[in-house]
Design a binder for these strands. Structure first.
Lengths: 189, 189
DNA sequence: CCTACCGATCGGTAGG
DNA sequence: CCTACCGATCGGTAGG
């Protein structure tokens, strides 16, 4: 199974979008990255936005299906929250590029994709928030605004996408332990 | 003291950069926002990048001078870290717009500004990290990689810049209490 | 502060 | 997969 040319283009695009941003990446930049002329890209993709759209939706679907798995598990809410934090770290470290599109570049989508994307994202966040809320009700989790807790968790791993590089020799496992520890038990002794 | 036209342009630009990103904001968009023709902007500013540069550096200087104040205080490291978290929240809620440029759009700076900006930012982060490190040594703060702690803290408030709106009726004070609580004592009971 | 306009570059198409 | 090229838009300037 070799990668289709379309996949090669998508991977290169995800990297360029991360490095320069969607708007600042031209189709000529992208063409050069995959050793093609700009016009030849259009034999594989229908346009610039289609690439962004597919990156955003693929990442969103991945988060949503992981959420489904975690919801099904018969573990405490705290355990579920831990797994969700690990999921975000895993995604950010294993797929450094498309996570950017998912975090930052989706706003360049045009309608109807923009609304559809926001709605999927909203669904994911609501389900995450429900787990937090349940944890507060069962008194596993400290009293607090679930929205504040939710976004603080989601944001807290956002630095990884431009910090994490395999050359640093910091394994995702060490990161998971460290970050989960901060968020779950705090930084003070 | 009325605002100079240049300041008006900068404020409008910061808002547009936040909403659409630096690259996707055209000088014509900006001109329209301040009710001018694009060419007239150049009587007040020397170019598009100058605006970005000034927003980035002003925000950086603000963080650095706040750091100076906090370093001088005769309080525990934990207390300093708390104040730094509050500083980030304060900046994100009081100046929702320029924080974006500081977080995300600085990468569109060209040399030599890019290197200079990175260097100021690095200085800020190193000094923040020193406080964390000292806290670990004095055993106030839990054992952990100071870099991981640093970036987790800095990132954790990044959602505010597009979430925080005065209409939500969530005061910065409540946010500060909530977020500081999560980071300092964790989410579990 | 405007009108008029510059060269460069954009995303994308025609046609082979 | 390419060459050749399209109209639109970009940041910015000239000249008044």
């Amino acid at each position: 199974m070799t990668r289709s040319k379309k996949e090669v283009i998508q991977v290169a695009a995800a990297r360029l979008f991360r490095d320069r941003g969607y708007t600042a990446t031209s189709m000529r930049d992208l063409a050069e990255a995959v050793q093609l002329k700009a016009s030849s890209l259009y034999n594989h993709i229908s346009g610039k936005e289609e690439i962004l759209k597919e990156i955003c939706f693929e990442t969103a679907e991945r988060f949503l299906s992981a959420m489904e798995e975690i919801e099904k598990e018969k573990v405490s809410c705290t355990e579920k929250v831990k797994k969700l934090i690990q999921l975000h770290i895993q995604t950010a470290t294993s797929d450094v590029t498309s996570i950017t599109a998912f975090n930052d570049e989706w706003r360049h989508l045009s309608e109807p994709h923009l609304s559809e994307f926001k709605s999927i994202r909203k669904t994911y966040e609501e389900r995450f928030k429900s787990i937090i809320q349940e944890g507060i009700e069962t008194e596993e989790i400290q009293e607090g605004d679930p929205t504040v807790i939710l976004y603080t968790i989601i944001s807290s791993v956002r630095w990884l996408y431009d910090w994490y590089k395999p050359e640093r020799n910091v394994s995702p496992e060490i990161l998971k332990k460290g970050i989960v520890n901060i968020l779950v038990t705090g930084i003070v002794k």
